[in-house]
């Protein structure tokens, strides 16, 4: 690794700091501008003002806003988010330790599905441009893009667990198996493999299919279209004609030469889509009662749990920032022309 490349990575990481800072600042203040507070939203009007003030004091909400803000920034810096403000006031770190793995377990297969299916079907559509399969795939991409995640999820639930009961309706694994299952890392699939708990693994995978396919399909549309357009452009490049003139088979030209070149702009898009994927995960988790970050976020927003919400958003922001740095680093490996 050259010194300039190292410098680039360091600069790139430093540049994500203002991005994360702006985002969490925004969330911090927006939460407090919204009507309602953690106490009233949880306990309702029955609690007396005196009692409410006592709780406020305990939670530190009576302190000046700027002190609360810097306190929170300190929390983010140390990744030690303190306690939630509602529903048992569990330490947020413990909550994230259980829920973040669940969300990652959902989003990774979804992203893989999106990227692999989107890119290959996009390449296929470009290869068979203006043929029925191309029109079909383009239509498909619009339809899945236009359907809201929760509706598609609901549709799948009706189709595959009610009408044709082949998949579990919701949750992460069958409750019957919970007593036999002992998580280590909270990445349940990994844990099931580590503890050689095959029935649990089967149940986990079954539960994973519907939510991850739902989430993956929704993002497939843009990938398919982007790949298709870029591929069509690349297939008109001189080096493809030159390859054809050398007798290189058409399939090899499309799926090796053109696709590798097309992958470069798509990589940027993967980074951008990651944020959308997390947003989609929030809805998907709600639809499928998936015990991840998204569902946590939704319930805590309703409860105006300032601390929980801003912590989850901070984690999301750090994730998106990390992915975009990763994408820029990957560039150097995929595109030989990129030299920092």
């Amino acid at each position: 690794m050259s010194a300039s490349f190292r410098n680039f990575i360091i600069t790139r990481i430093l540049l994500t700091i203002p991005m994360v800072l702006i985002l969490i600042t925004l969330v911090f203040f927006v939460m407090r501008v919204l009507p309602g507070d953690p106490i009233r939203s949880q306990l309702g009007p029955k609690v007396s003002e005196q009692q409410a003030n006592a709780i406020r004091e305990r939670l530190g909400l009576n302190r000046p806003l700027y002190i609360q803000y810097f306190d929170f920034l300190g929390d983010v810096l140390t990744l030690n988010f303190g306690n939630a403000m509602t529903q048992g006031e569990r330490p947020i770190k413990a909550e994230l330790g259980e829920r973040l793995p669940a969300t990652i377990e959902l989003t990774v297969p979804a992203m893989l599905l999106t990227v692999l299916f989107g890119i290959f079907s996009g390449a296929y559509a470009a290869h068979h441009r203006k043929k029925p399969s191309d029109y079909g795939l383009r239509m498909f991409s619009i339809i899945v893009y236009a359907i809201p995640v929760f509706f598609l999820g609901l549709l799948f639930q009706v189709l595959f667990s009610v009408r044709l009961p082949i998949l579990p309706l919701d949750g992460r694994m069958s409750p019957m198996l919970l007593s036999t299952f002992h998580p280590i890392t909270n990445f349940y699939v990994l844990d099931a493999i580590l503890t050689r708990n095959w029935p649990a693994l089967g149940s986990l995978l079954q539960h994973l299919i519907m939510p991850s396919v739902t989430l993956g399909l929704v993002l497939t549309g843009p990938f398919l279209r982007l790949t298709r357009v870029n591929m069509i452009e690349t297939l008109h490049e001189d080096f493809i004609t030159a390859g054809r003139a050398r007798g290189i088979p058409e399939k090899r030209l499309v799926y090796r030469h053109a696709l590798r070149n097309t992958f470069i702009p798509i990589l940027t898009f993967i980074g951008l889509q990651f944020a959308l994927l997390l947003a989609g995960a929030v809805l998907t988790e709600t639809t499928f009662s998936w015990p991840g970050m998204g569902r946590y976020l939704v319930t805590r927003i309703e409860l105006r749990d300032y601390n929980a919400v801003q912590s989850v958003i901070a984690v999301f922001a750090l994730f998106v920032g990390a992915i975009s740095v990763l994408v820029d680093i990957l560039y150097a490996f995929i595109d030989p022309r990129v030299r920092y």
Partner: peptide, 19 residues
């Protein structure tokens, strides 16, 4: 193509696969 007849293209800048 390639074995019996081959072509040298106009633009060497764009006729090679960049990756």
């Amino acid at each position: 193509r390639g074995r019996r007849i081959s072509m040298i293209f106009q633009d060497p800048m764009t006729s090679l696969n960049p990756v």
